[in-house]
Design a binder for these strands. Structure first.
Lengths: 237, 237
DNA sequence: CGGACACTTCGGCCGGGACCGAACGGTCCG
DNA sequence: CGGACCGTTCGGTCCCGGCCGAAGTGTCCG
């Protein structure tokens, strides 16, 4: 064998192959909501037979993209970790330019506009809401976006006084940019993004709408975001 | 149709499908060196017939992953832009845990150790060299990694006094973390990473070894890196 | 304990796509 | 201008993998 083919090529192809099927891609995108779905829910979502989806889940779990948890007769799956979520986001963002076409049906349209207003992206906030928060943090000098993407010392203090604890985990960055595919601009992800999202939901600043990823800012949320970050409630509607 | 399958699923699957072939994956990894390759070079590298590779290039170009430039009877291709490079890096990094197995042949071993010492990763420095530079920037307060990944004001000044111009382009971040797949830690990428890499090559601090991505620090480079960043030359050998 | 339910396994069907060699069209050079 | 070289197109082969329905396993509940 005289070729110098890169040793990582088979692995790369195998990994991409896991995502390269429309049904599996639909599953991964659905799981971007950060929750655990049952196999049946995913089968209905993707529009394939339960037997077909079972095989897909087997491959995704074996490939390390999904984590599973069996409970009685249910098989719950979720994205394996934040790194996998980032990977799927990143790939989806690369596709977005074409996917950001105008919607076809009224249902898609209303659901789309709710998603555009505010949604979760795995474990952090996205959509106009996510952008508004990210921009507000930047304007107040709490987040530095001009030379990269990192919280400032003032930013660390802000999280502290807001009562949002940032757990310094092993590898995961405290702050990271995640490209928003509706706004086409980066929003806050990483440990801080996750903590902020969790806090907004726990404090009742936001509530989930329906069974989708979309979230809605509550009256209490509008007040809190206006007070803590100077976000004009009108931009969130 | 009663399913709620995500509208982005077909696009995501199509994009992943472009990478999901071992031959195309080998091409993308080879092109991570940032240079333009001819179709013939890639065919030899991947170990397939020229006709087969021609079809692959057609798909990769049509899919927007590669940019092509025809010169006479040659067809030069390179990664379309930094975003595509980042995508491939990120996927490869996800694979790395398995791929970081011990090499099989002596040739792989010596080539591997040169690559581990220092190499380019699209347009920035990687390997022990890339990590050493990134760490040195951090230790001197020029780069902030603890709360994200961004240059500090001192860092901007350092680039300025070192005579390395940072062109503020449209979308590309000034500094970004790129996970190093031999060191398993982030190194500097983005505009600053690219400018630094270009400068080290132009100033003769580093030279490319052979036709691969590997680079070697020169005597002048050791002196410069020691003086400007306090990097111990021993760590680069 | 029996029936409804969630998921898995299996066999069979089918389409897509990776691959090659042969023939062809451009380009460069002696 | 003829021959070497680089790349592309085409026809044909072959295998991989997604899909389904039917049958099977395990779980929950009345």
């Amino acid at each position: 064998m005289t070729t110098t083919r890169d040793a990582a090529a088979p692995g790369l192809a195998r990994l991409a192959g896991l995502i390269a099927d429309e049904t599996r891609a639909a599953c991964l995108l659905a799981l971007l909501d950060g929750r655990a779905w049952t196999a049946g829910e995913l089968a209905r979502h993707a529009g394939v037979a339960a037997s077909t989806l079972s095989e897909h889940l087997g491959k995704l779990v074996a490939g390390g993209l999904l984590a599973e948890e069996r409970q009685g007769r249910h098989r719950y799956v979720r994205l394996a970790d934040a790194r996998v979520a980032q990977l799927v986001e990143e790939l989806a963002a690369q596709v977005a330019p074409e996917a950001a076409r105008r919607p076809r049906t009224l249902r898609e349209s209303t659901a789309g506009s709710a998603m555009a207003r505010g949604r979760t992206c795995y474990d952090h906030l996205a959509g106009r809401l996510g952008i508004a928060v990210t921009d507000a943090l930047s304007e107040r000098g709490l987040l530095r976006q001009d030379t990269g993407f990192a919280l400032t010392d003032a930013g660390l203090a802000w999280f502290d006084t807001a009562g949002i604890r940032l757990a310094r985990t092993g590898r995961r960055p405290l702050a990271r940019a995640c490209l928003d595919w509706t706004e086409r601009r980066p929003h806050l992800a990483g440990v801080a993004g996750a903590a902020l999202c969790r806090h907004t939901l726990e404090a009742g600043w936001c509530v989930r709408i329906g069974s989708e990823r979309a979230v809605k800012v509550t009256a209490a949320g509008e007040e809190a975001l206006s007070e803590l970050l100077g976000i004009d409630p009108a931009t969130l509607r």
